[in-house]
Simulated scan of single mutants.
Amino acid sequence: MSPSTARLCEVWRGPIAESVHFGHVVIAGPDGEVEAAWGDPDATILPRSSAKMIQALPLVASGAADARGLGPEQLALACASHQGAPLHVAKVAEWLAAEGFDEAEMRCGPEPSRDKNLRFEMIRDGKSPSQLHNNCSGKHAGFLTLAAQLGGGAEYVEPEHPVQIAARDAFEVVTDRESPGFGIDGCSAPNFATTMSAMARAMSWFATAHRREDTLSRAGVRLREAMMAHPLLVAGEGRACTLLMQAAKEPVALKTGAEGFFIAILPERGQGIAIKAQDGATRAAECAIAAVLVRMGVLDADHRDVARFLSPQITNRRGIVTGSIKPAVTLLG
């Protein structure tokens, strides 16, 4: 634990707090400035898949989305970390076919479906997973579509490809700072680094995009609206992004990222939220985002789908409740 991290949640077994997760939380206001923070707002992070709506901005702002006839479903998939369920696989396959792309042109790599039924069915039938099952296949369909507009060759995930230069430029605009570097994500695309406060600022940029008339802001509105209109495409059955968006009492776009990242975009308030669990635990990030949104009145703590992330029970192999995960009291207020 770093001295500058904050307690996000605790894992209790009986009367004992067996584990504690630490990290960072930043809420940015409509002006992009920090309104509240737990932990270190200046911590440098990789937002991972929480940045997908930023990576999708050039797809819309360049005119490629309109030139290719993309609608809200495709835009939601471009921002998605989906389950690779039949719905997602079919939608991405339709997108590729409509644009004349082949799955082999994608650079995300094959991944077993995260949909349990489909994964077991494929194992039973001896079928191998394809790139369509990859949770990032929608993002890569977007990259392919943008590459067809910008040119630059087949290797669109290379950092100096026009697609990734456009993604980096958009990232630095919405975070309002130069990125200090990047790591290569699980899907082989560059993932640009920034600070916690800058990532929260980027989410407030999306939240206030409807107040501006520039091309990039209009693209931001379309992407966040697509996410909120199609929460099932953004993640999938049983996933925090999908269930919490559906449970919210006001419009909110939510997106998880690997290694314990989570963001929220709140258009009615003009606020953006960024959360990072320092140890990379998804359960900590899900608990923390639920707690912060309950604190803000966006979610109801008693809602069944909120409670499953805010304060989930821990059961043993006999189904006996042995403990629970609880958000830090400082997050709930």
Rank of each mutant, 00 (worst) to 15 (best):
A148Q: 10
G270Y: 10
N134Y: 14
T175N: 10
P112Q: 08
R224A: 09
L244G: 06
S197I: 13
A198T: 09
E111R: 08
M227H: 03
V34F: 06
E105R: 03
P3E: 10
R283P: 11
G14C: 08
A202F: 02
I320C: 08
S49D: 02
E172Q: 13
P129V: 11
G220D: 03
V234T: 05
S50L: 13
H24L: 03
E94C: 06
A284W: 06
P162E: 02
E158H: 00
I273V: 04
L233M: 00
K326N: 12
R308G: 00
K52I: 14
E259Q: 06
H21A: 14
E94G: 15
F171V: 05
Q131N: 12
T194D: 07
A170P: 00
I273Y: 07
L87A: 05
M199F: 02
M196R: 13
G319P: 01
N117V: 15
L243W: 01
R48N: 01
P267G: 11
A167I: 14
S217M: 12
Q271G: 02
H303G: 04
V157N: 14
M196N: 10
A285N: 08
E99R: 12
A28T: 12
R114N: 13
R304D: 01
T195V: 07
S217I: 08
H133Y: 11
A301I: 02
P251Q: 09
T208I: 13
C287Q: 07
M122C: 01
